[in-house]
Protein backbone atom coordinates (compact mmCIF):
# COMPACT_ATOMS: atom_id res chain seq x y z
CA UNK A 1 0.00 0.00 0.00
CA UNK A 2 1.35 3.38 -0.99
CA UNK A 3 0.89 6.49 1.08
CA UNK A 4 2.03 10.08 0.67
CA UNK A 5 2.52 12.65 3.41
CA UNK A 6 2.33 16.25 2.23
CA UNK A 7 4.83 18.63 3.82
CA UNK A 8 4.06 22.34 4.14
CA UNK A 9 6.42 24.94 5.59
CA UNK A 10 5.67 24.65 9.31
CA UNK A 11 4.42 21.05 9.29
CA UNK A 12 5.99 19.29 12.27
CA UNK A 13 4.26 15.92 12.53
CA UNK A 14 5.21 14.83 9.00
CA UNK A 15 8.15 12.66 10.09
CA UNK A 16 6.25 11.06 12.97
CA UNK A 17 3.56 10.17 10.46
CA UNK A 18 6.18 8.78 8.07
CA UNK A 19 7.57 6.56 10.86
CA UNK A 20 4.09 5.39 11.84
CA UNK A 21 2.98 4.58 8.29
CA UNK A 22 6.18 2.65 7.54
CA UNK A 23 6.03 0.79 10.85
CA UNK A 24 2.66 -0.66 9.92
CA UNK A 25 3.51 -1.54 6.35
CA UNK A 26 2.80 1.43 4.12
CA UNK A 27 5.31 2.38 1.44
CA UNK A 28 5.39 6.05 2.28
CA UNK A 29 6.66 9.02 0.29
CA UNK A 30 7.07 12.60 1.41
CA UNK A 31 5.65 15.19 -0.97
CA UNK A 32 6.51 18.90 -0.94
CA UNK A 33 3.54 21.26 -1.13
CA UNK A 34 4.89 23.00 -4.22
CA UNK A 35 5.01 19.81 -6.26
CA UNK A 36 2.40 20.04 -8.97
CA UNK A 37 1.51 16.34 -8.98
CA UNK A 38 0.90 13.64 -6.43
CA UNK A 39 2.76 10.35 -6.74
CA UNK A 40 0.50 7.34 -7.16
CA UNK A 41 -0.96 6.69 -3.70
CA UNK A 42 -3.66 4.76 -1.90
CA UNK A 43 -3.68 7.16 1.02
CA UNK A 44 -2.80 10.86 1.30
CA UNK A 45 -2.01 12.28 4.72
CA UNK A 46 -2.04 15.95 5.64
CA UNK A 47 0.06 16.03 8.82
CA UNK A 48 -0.13 18.16 11.93
CA UNK A 49 1.88 21.28 12.61
CA UNK A 50 1.59 24.96 11.92
CA UNK A 51 1.53 25.19 8.13
CA UNK A 52 2.52 28.66 6.95
CA UNK A 53 2.79 29.77 10.58
CA UNK A 54 -1.00 29.54 11.03
CA UNK A 55 -1.13 32.92 9.26
CA UNK A 56 -4.58 34.34 8.49
CA UNK A 57 -6.42 31.25 9.82
CA UNK A 58 -5.03 27.80 10.65
CA UNK A 59 -4.77 25.84 7.41
CA UNK A 60 -6.04 28.63 5.15
CA UNK A 61 -2.81 29.23 3.22
CA UNK A 62 -1.99 25.53 2.92
CA UNK A 63 -5.54 25.04 1.67
CA UNK A 64 -4.61 27.12 -1.41
CA UNK A 65 -1.19 25.57 -2.09
CA UNK A 66 -0.25 24.03 -5.42
CA UNK A 67 -0.55 20.39 -4.39
CA UNK A 68 -4.02 20.85 -2.92
CA UNK A 69 -5.75 20.75 -6.31
CA UNK A 70 -4.35 17.25 -6.84
CA UNK A 71 -5.42 16.28 -3.31
CA UNK A 72 -8.96 17.54 -4.05
CA UNK A 73 -9.07 15.58 -7.34
CA UNK A 74 -7.79 12.46 -5.55
CA UNK A 75 -10.38 12.85 -2.78
CA UNK A 76 -13.23 13.48 -5.21
CA UNK A 77 -12.35 10.32 -7.11
CA UNK A 78 -12.79 8.35 -3.86
CA UNK A 79 -9.16 8.24 -2.69
CA UNK A 80 -8.49 8.12 1.06
CA UNK A 81 -7.38 11.42 2.56
CA UNK A 82 -6.51 11.65 6.26
CA UNK A 83 -5.93 15.02 7.93
CA UNK A 84 -4.53 15.09 11.45
CA UNK A 85 -4.74 18.26 13.56
CA UNK A 86 -3.49 21.02 11.22
CA UNK A 87 -4.33 18.59 8.40
CA UNK A 88 -7.94 18.57 9.65
CA UNK A 89 -7.92 22.38 9.65
CA UNK A 90 -6.61 22.34 6.06
CA UNK A 91 -9.40 19.96 5.01
CA UNK A 92 -12.08 22.27 6.40
CA UNK A 93 -10.42 25.29 4.74
CA UNK A 94 -10.46 23.57 1.34
CA UNK A 95 -14.13 22.72 1.83
CA UNK A 96 -13.47 18.96 1.59
CA UNK A 97 -14.90 18.68 5.10
CA UNK A 98 -17.69 20.85 6.51
CA UNK A 99 -17.34 23.26 9.45
CA UNK A 100 -14.31 24.92 10.96
CA UNK A 101 -11.84 24.50 13.83
CA UNK A 102 -12.01 27.45 16.19
CA UNK A 103 -9.85 28.59 19.05
CA UNK A 104 -10.17 26.39 22.13
CA UNK A 105 -12.89 27.43 24.57
CA UNK A 106 -10.41 28.33 27.33
CA UNK A 107 -7.94 30.18 25.07
CA UNK A 108 -5.26 27.69 26.03
CA UNK A 109 -2.99 25.48 23.99
CA UNK A 110 -3.96 21.97 25.09
CA UNK A 111 -1.36 19.20 25.07
CA UNK A 112 -2.49 15.99 26.76
CA UNK A 113 -3.79 12.48 26.32
CA UNK A 114 -7.53 12.12 25.87
CA UNK A 115 -10.00 9.35 25.03
CA UNK A 116 -12.12 9.21 21.92
CA UNK A 117 -15.02 6.97 21.04
CA UNK A 118 -15.34 5.58 17.53
CA UNK A 119 -18.85 6.44 16.33
CA UNK A 120 -18.90 4.93 12.88
CA UNK A 121 -17.11 1.77 11.77
CA UNK A 122 -18.73 1.54 8.35
CA UNK A 123 -15.66 2.93 6.57
CA UNK A 124 -12.07 2.07 5.63
CA UNK A 125 -10.58 3.81 8.66
CA UNK A 126 -12.39 2.07 11.50
CA UNK A 127 -13.98 -1.06 10.03
CA UNK A 128 -13.27 -4.04 12.34
CA UNK A 129 -11.23 -1.92 14.76
CA UNK A 130 -10.61 -4.02 17.87
CA UNK A 131 -11.24 -1.24 20.42
CA UNK A 132 -13.88 1.43 20.12
CA UNK A 133 -12.46 3.69 22.82
CA UNK A 134 -8.95 4.86 22.03
CA UNK A 135 -6.47 6.80 24.12
CA UNK A 136 -4.79 9.34 21.82
CA UNK A 137 -2.89 12.59 22.16
CA UNK A 138 -4.01 16.12 21.35
CA UNK A 139 -1.86 19.23 20.99
CA UNK A 140 -3.68 22.23 19.60
CA UNK A 141 -4.81 25.79 20.08
CA UNK A 142 -7.58 25.79 17.47
CA UNK A 143 -9.37 22.47 17.88
CA UNK A 144 -12.88 23.44 18.81
CA UNK A 145 -15.01 22.04 16.02
CA UNK A 146 -17.86 24.32 14.99
CA UNK A 147 -20.53 24.33 12.30
CA UNK A 148 -24.02 25.77 11.88
CA UNK A 149 -27.00 23.89 13.38
CA UNK A 150 -28.16 23.03 9.89
CA UNK A 151 -24.74 21.62 8.99
CA UNK A 152 -24.60 19.69 12.27
CA UNK A 153 -27.93 18.05 11.52
CA UNK A 154 -26.70 17.06 8.08
CA UNK A 155 -23.46 15.64 9.58
CA UNK A 156 -25.47 13.64 12.11
CA UNK A 157 -28.01 12.43 9.54
CA UNK A 158 -25.22 11.20 7.26
CA UNK A 159 -23.26 9.51 10.08
CA UNK A 160 -20.27 11.75 9.46
CA UNK A 161 -19.15 12.02 13.09
CA UNK A 162 -16.10 9.76 13.21
CA UNK A 163 -14.86 10.16 16.78
CA UNK A 164 -15.98 12.09 19.86
CA UNK A 165 -14.10 13.06 23.01
CA UNK A 166 -15.09 10.94 26.00
CA UNK A 167 -13.77 9.43 29.23
CA UNK A 168 -12.07 6.03 29.49
CA UNK A 169 -15.50 4.36 29.69
CA UNK A 170 -16.85 6.07 26.58
CA UNK A 171 -18.97 8.74 28.25
CA UNK A 172 -19.09 11.85 26.06
CA UNK A 173 -20.08 14.88 28.10
CA UNK A 174 -19.14 18.50 28.79
CA UNK A 175 -16.53 17.50 31.37
CA UNK A 176 -14.66 15.35 28.84
CA UNK A 177 -14.73 17.93 26.09
CA UNK A 178 -11.22 19.42 26.14
CA UNK A 179 -11.73 22.33 23.74
CA UNK A 180 -15.41 23.21 23.50
CA UNK A 181 -16.05 21.31 20.27
CA UNK A 182 -19.71 21.14 19.30
CA UNK A 183 -21.16 17.75 20.37
CA UNK A 184 -17.66 16.68 21.59
CA UNK A 185 -16.62 16.18 17.96
CA UNK A 186 -12.96 15.18 17.62
CA UNK A 187 -13.09 13.99 14.01
CA UNK A 188 -15.46 13.89 11.05
CA UNK A 189 -15.83 12.28 7.64
CA UNK A 190 -17.11 13.64 4.39
CA UNK A 191 -20.42 12.16 3.23
CA UNK A 192 -18.68 9.35 1.31
CA UNK A 193 -16.40 8.50 4.31
CA UNK A 194 -13.19 8.49 2.27
CA UNK A 195 -11.94 11.74 3.86
CA UNK A 196 -11.26 11.81 7.60
CA UNK A 197 -10.18 14.84 9.61
CA UNK A 198 -9.33 14.44 13.28
CA UNK A 199 -7.64 16.57 15.92
CA UNK A 200 -6.02 13.70 17.93
CA UNK A 201 -2.66 12.32 16.82
CA UNK A 202 -2.60 8.53 16.37
CA UNK A 203 1.01 8.75 15.12
CA UNK A 204 2.11 9.78 18.62
CA UNK A 205 0.73 6.62 20.21
CA UNK A 206 2.59 3.83 18.49
CA UNK A 207 5.12 2.80 21.13
CA UNK A 208 4.12 0.91 24.23
CA UNK A 209 7.06 2.20 26.26
CA UNK A 210 6.99 5.85 25.21
CA UNK A 211 3.34 6.61 24.78
CA UNK A 212 0.72 3.95 24.40
CA UNK A 213 -0.42 1.74 21.62
CA UNK A 214 -3.87 2.87 20.67
CA UNK A 215 -2.40 4.69 17.66
CA UNK A 216 -0.94 1.33 16.59
CA UNK A 217 -4.44 -0.14 16.68
CA UNK A 218 -5.60 2.61 14.32
CA UNK A 219 -2.77 2.12 11.77
CA UNK A 220 -2.80 -1.70 11.93
CA UNK A 221 -6.50 -1.65 11.28
CA UNK A 222 -6.20 0.90 8.48
CA UNK A 223 -3.67 -1.13 6.50
CA UNK A 224 -5.67 -4.31 7.09
CA UNK A 225 -8.72 -2.63 5.57
CA UNK A 226 -6.73 -1.93 2.40
CA UNK A 227 -5.86 -5.55 1.82
Amino acid sequence: MKSSVIIFPGSNCDRDMDVALKKFGFKNQMVWHNDPKLPKSDLIVLPGGFSFGDYLRCGSIAGKSKIINSVIDFAKSGGLVLGICNGFQILTETGLLPGVLQQNRNIEFICKNIYVKVNNTDNKYFKNIKKNILELHIAHNEGSYFCSNQELKSIQDNNQIAITYCNSKGLSDHEHNPNGAIDNIAGIFNKEKNILGMMPHPERMIDKYLSGEDGSIFFENLIKNFK
Binding site: L56, R57, K64, V100, Q102, F146, S148, E151
Partner: peptide
Protein backbone atom coordinates in the same frame (compact mmCIF):
# COMPACT_ATOMS: atom_id res chain seq x y z
CA UNK B 1 -14.88 34.95 -0.41
CA UNK B 2 -11.95 32.80 -1.54
CA UNK B 3 -9.36 33.49 1.14
CA UNK B 4 -9.60 36.44 3.52
CA UNK B 5 -12.77 35.33 5.30
CA UNK B 6 -14.06 31.89 6.21
CA UNK B 7 -17.74 32.32 5.49
CA UNK B 8 -18.69 29.48 7.83
CA UNK B 9 -17.97 31.73 10.82
Amino acid sequence: KKLLANLVI
